[in-house]
Design a protein around this nucleic acid. Structure first.
Lengths: 194, 194
DNA sequence: GTCTATACAAGGATAGAC
DNA sequence: GTCTATCCTTGTATAGAC
C-alpha cells in the first residue's frame, strides 16, 4: 500500500470498527497494520495521538467517499443529491460500515476525551452546512433560519438512526426508509410554510 | 441510603456519567459507593455484570422519573404529554443529565458488548411504543403505520440530539427547540396526509 | 524509520478472615 | 455480607540496536 503511517491509520479505523475505542489495543493495532508497536508510538506519540489522527483520517475518507458518489452518479437535482448524501451512511458496503462504526465510536468517546471534541465539532458543522446548502437549493422559497433548522434535524436524525443501526436494533433498509421519509417531511414543511 | 447493592448501582451510574464506560474503574466505583472492591464483585460477579445491571437500573429510573413528571403536571392533552416526554431528557437537571449521559454511554458501548443489547433493544422499543401511543391520541385520523414511523423518527432524533448535546456541540435549549419543532412537523405531516 | 526486548503501571479479580 | 490484602494478567510505553 502507501506509507506505513497511512497503513497504521487504516488499521486503526478497522480495529476500532471491530472492537470499539475501548477495545483498541496498541499491540493488536500494530499487528493489524503489520508493524511493531514501537513504530506506532514513533509516528503517533501515544494512544490519544492515534485516536485523534484516526478521527481526522475517517472524516477525510468519508468526505472523499461522499464526493466520489456524487461524481459517479452524474449531475442530478438537489433533492436527489440530498438523499444521496444523507442515505450514504446506511449502505451496507463494508467500507462505509467500517467508517461509520468507527466514527460513531470516536464520537461517543469524545465526550470524555476533550482532545477529540474540536475535530468532531468541525465535522458535525460541515455536515450541517452541506445539508443546508442542498436543502436551500431544493427549496429556494424557504427562510434561511428554517432551512438551517431542518438541516440540523436531518443530520441529528441521521446520527440517531445510525447509532441504532450499529447497535443492531434497526435494520439498514428500515433506517434508509425512515431517513427518506424524514427528508420528504422536512421538505414538505419548508414548502407549506407561509 | 438503601442497601449496599443499590448504593453501588447509583455510584455506577454517577461514575459512568462522569468518566464514561471506558473510564469506569472497579476501585473507583467501589470508592464512590463507599464499599470495598470485593463487595462489588460479590454482588455483581464481574465488570460486565455491573454494566448490565446499571443499564437496567438507569432504564427503570428514567421510567420512574418520566412517570413522576406526568403525575405532577396534572392531566394535559396528548400533544403536551408528548412534548413533555420527548423533551424531558434535555432538561438541565443534574439527575436527568446524569441519567442520559450514562444511558448514551451504555448504548454506545452495547455495540461491542452483546450482553447489553437485549436490554437496550427492549428499552428502545418501549420508547417507540409510548411515543406511538401519544401520537395516536394526538392525531387519531392517521394510519397506524404512519404513526409508528413518526414515532421512530422522533425517538431516533431525540437520541441523535442528545448525543450532540452530550458531546458539547449543541446547547440544551437549542436541542429542545429542534425537538419541539420536529414534533410540530411530524404532527403536521400526519394531519395533511390524505 | 523500523525492529526486538523489556520495563512498568494499571486494573480486574480472588482468597480468606471476620 | 463485608473487608483487607494480594495476585497476576493485560496493556502502555520506552531503550537501544540496526
Amino acid at each position: 500500500m502507501t506509507d506505513r503511517r497511512t497503513a497504521i491509520l487504516e488499521a486503526s479505523a478497522r480495529t476500532i470498527a471491530r472492537r470499539g475505542v475501548r477495545g483498541l489495543r496498541m499491540d493488536e493495532l500494530a499487528a493489524e497494520a503489520g508493524v511493531s508497536t514501537a513504530l506506532v508510538y514513533y509516528h503517533f506519540k501515544d494512544r490519544a495521538g492515534i485516536l485523534r489522527r484516526t478521527l481526522e483520517f475517517i472524516t477525510d475518507r468519508a468526505g472523499r467517499y461522499a464526493r466520489g458518489q456524487h461524481d459517479t452518479e452524474g449531475p442530478t437535482n438537489p433533492r436527489e443529491l440530498l438523499e444521496l448524501s444523507l442515505l450514504l451512511e446506511f449502505q451496507d458496503l463494508p467500507e462505509v460500515r467500517e467508517n461509520s462504526t468507527a466514527w460513531g465510536e470516536l464520537r461517543a468517546s469524545a465526550i470524555f476525551e476533550p482532545e477529540l471534541r474540536e475535530e468532531l465539532a468541525e465535522a458535525g458543522a460541515a455536515w450541517i452546512r452541506q445539508t443546508t446548502e442542498l436543502l436551500a437549493l431544493a427549496q429556494p422559497a424557504a427562510t434561511t433560519a428554517e432551512v438551517i433548522s431542518s438541516a440540523e434535524r436531518l443530520t441529528a436524525l441521521r446520527e440517531g438512526l445510525n447509532a441504532r443501526r450499529l447497535g443492531g436494533i434497526l435494520r439498514p433498509e428500515h433506517a434508509r426508509e425512515l431517513m427518506r421519509e424524514a427528508i420528504e417531511v422536512e421538505i414538505a414543511h419548508l414548502t407549506t410554510r407561509r
